[in-house]
Design a protein around this nucleic acid. Structure first.
Lengths: 214, 214
DNA sequence: TTCAAAATACCCCAAAAGGGGTATGGTGCA
DNA sequence: TGCACCATACCCCTTTTGGGGTATTTTGAA
């Protein structure tokens, strides 16, 4: 928590240098309550940078080279509980939202957000108010309420496991071998997945998965 | 071509608002030879915006909603030959580089580039010098030298078209209908694509395409 | 403890995908 | 004027996928 007067120090972790620098420039203006004190471009540089500069807040991308943002968020929460983490990502990783909230992540912004949203998010977070992008709240808040969305899309962990392998380019026989299952079982799971997602072939599954950011 | 004194006007087309705005801020500094005169966030807004503001240069993302950047580049080249196009993308779309050069695109930057590279690229382009990211040149310079890479990956435009439809979740019969082709023709193209990419099924194609960022 | 799922696994069958050919007309380059 | 490549389209064949069932065991929550 930071008083009104104090300027919040920020570490930006994003491998797209132009985006990273652009963010810094966006946050650097006359009277800005923020100061970007460090920028890193690799997942493995985040923790060392926090050690060095001890920022109030980390703006963290999910897709980072060398180390995954989710993983980093976990370590920050356990090793640096006073450092606020705000995820900034291209996608609505809906399936991560609950996990991120559990970890204690303070905010989630999309790269398609506006400068105003960015500022609002950071100001809320520095006041101790969590700020999650509306497109995330809309769909994921309903996940633990028993509505249509649940009935349509709620997949079992086995089904999710198989979806991931299918997306990785494994054919049914290969998945069966990998999971020590009969091909028939994998086929059954695949049928159930298609039924639940209301799709009819692999290509549509890939599309679905991309859209949901699984 | 623009004289040293004139300030180059720029249109930025990128759906990630924070990136788009960040770019504008990066290009806006004391004595900057550039001026961002318009920003759009959707592929379908690019051509109308060019009509309106007639920029010297368009900074164009490849992955735009509603309309593909490659497609837009083609139209800009034919309808507005005086407008320079610089691609700015997350990925090294190596397979597109020859195509982009043929179209007459003046530059290709990665989002992981630095501000210095961005400035250098734009200055070169405004002097009439093409600027393609080094990681593209490294691999694509060999593209017209008849080596293995060419034989493995160089896809025809028809093949690319079919890849895109396959990735969108269309089955062979649907693609055939959409392109007014025989199913057999689509099958032939698909076979040739798989041969060129050394893959053996749709799932692997999807993976390949994701990795290459098409 | 009972009941609903999830996970397992099989049946049958049609459709599509995948892999091997061949062939023909067109286009662009040397 | 070739030659290479592209786009088109067909043949044959096997494997995989997709869609409809049914059935057993395990597991977790009421």
């Amino acid at each position: 928590m930071v008083s009104e007067a104090k300027i919040a120090t920020i570490l930006i972790a994003d491998d797209h240098q132009l985006f990273n620098d652009g963010l810094r420039t966006l946050l650097t203006f006359e009277g800005s309550p923020f100061k970007v004190i460090e920028q890193v471009y690799s997942g493995s540089d985040v923790i060392p940078a926090i050690h060095l500069v001890n920022p109030d807040l980390v703006l963290l991308d999910i897709n980072l080279p060398n180390r995954n943002g989710l993983d980093i968020a976990r370590q920050v929460a356990s090793d640096f509980p006073s450092v606020q983490v705000v995820i900034i990502s291209m996608y609505s990783y809906r399936k991560f939202v609950d996990e991120l909230k559990k970890i204690g992540v303070a905010g989630y912004l999309l790269k398609s957000a506006s400068k105003q949203e960015l500022i609002a998010c950071l100001q809320n977070v520095m006041k101790g108010i969590a700020y999650f992008d509306a497109t995330l709240n809309g769909k994921s808040a309903t996940l633990h309420q028993g509505d249509d969305f649940v009935k349509k899309f709620k997949l079992s962990s086995r089904e999710l496991e198989i979806i991931v392998l299918m997306k990785q380019g494994l054919a049914t026989p290969e998945i069966a071998i990998q999971l020590f299952l009969s091909e028939e079982t994998v086929k059954t799971h695949r049928k159930n997945i298609y039924y639940k997602l209301k799709i009819k072939n692999l290509a549509e599954l890939i599309r679905f998965v991309s859209e949901q950011g699984i």
